[in-house]
Computed example of a mutant assay.
Amino acid sequence: MIGQILLSGLATGCIYGLVALSFVLVYKATEAVSFMQGELLMVGAFAAVLLSAAAGWPAWVAVLASVLLLALAGALIERLALRRAMGQPHLTAVLLTFGLGLVLRGAVTTVPEATHRAHLLSLPGLGGQVAWGDMVASGAQLGVIAATLLSCAALAAFFRYTRVGLALRACSENPRIASMMGVSVPAMHTLAWALGAALAALAGSLMAPVTFVHPGMGVVALKAFPAAVIGGMHSLPGALAGGVFIGVLEALAGRYLPEGVNHVAAYALMLVALLCFPRGLFGGRAA
């Protein structure tokens, strides 16, 4: 029983971790907190459903296309709207992203087909179940875990072995010195928002076979943000670890604690982490 609970929590935590990674990617590069990641997740899932069901594309091709489309959308949003908030008080960017998120959600809800019923995105290879003794894992759960591991490995390789990834790391560490060394800081900001939107879209597509696609699915970002804070807003591994930790904690709380405790566990843990580790568990110490 405990193994089944941990597996379920791990799969959910991987979703939280992917969205938390999108928060941290944006924050590290721009020092701005994006509160539209949940809406980007929802739009990415709807894009995959639209391309798969309406356009007839193979499901995995539709998912890849939705990730690329949302990356482009993230870049355009940064260039057209968010760049104007750079250098302004932090509250400006927070309110701007919050407002843009409301616009995205409102635009989706104006489409009757999106609000009248939930949509299912069936991904080949994620059906069926795998049993290990008394523990049974669904293909969707294993797919979420595998996709998260592959995404993290791809990000690690990108940041370590590519010139653009190294430039983005340099910009995240010290934009002024990076600019002096020839790195285009505005271009790196655009790239960070594009990657953040792409990760959110991937998380939405991976959620689709489990939770269906509907306008309210972006609420998962409200659990991913505490994961980013707990892990440290400057730590990519910390964001993933925070997401997994919250997912497992919720699963255990839902099984062994009174009803409803699992819904507040993430926020209570975030408050404790902020009091004991203001920079997060993986944030390190301020210089």
Rank of each mutant, 00 (worst) to 15 (best):
K223P: 04
V24C: 00
L82E: 09
S52H: 05
M1D: 15
A81N: 02
L155W: 08
T92Q: 01
L76P: 07
A81V: 13
R285H: 03
A146E: 08
G13H: 12
V248I: 15
G133V: 03
G260Y: 14
P58D: 10
V248F: 09
G128H: 02
G242H: 13
A200T: 12
T92L: 04
G284T: 02
A253P: 07
M207Q: 12
A198H: 07
G216N: 12
A157I: 08
H214F: 11
Q4Y: 05
V103I: 15
P209I: 01
V33M: 12
I145P: 10
L25T: 11
M36G: 15
A71N: 10
P278N: 04
P124L: 05
T115W: 04
G216C: 06
A32C: 11
A65V: 13
A45D: 12
A153V: 11
A170K: 02
A253I: 05
F46W: 08
L96R: 07
L126A: 09
L155G: 12
A192Q: 06
A200L: 08
L142Q: 08
L202E: 03
M233A: 09
A201S: 01
L142D: 07
L274F: 12
A55I: 06
P58S: 07
S205Y: 07
A273W: 06
V144K: 11
F98R: 01
A20M: 08
A228M: 11
S235H: 09
S235E: 03
G182Y: 07
V24K: 00
G243V: 12
F225M: 03
L95R: 04
L249K: 00
L150G: 15
L252V: 00
L68A: 15
A137G: 04
L275P: 03
G74V: 08
G38S: 00
V272H: 09
I15K: 08
L82Y: 08
A107L: 15
A48V: 04
T30F: 02
R169F: 04
L281T: 05
E31C: 01
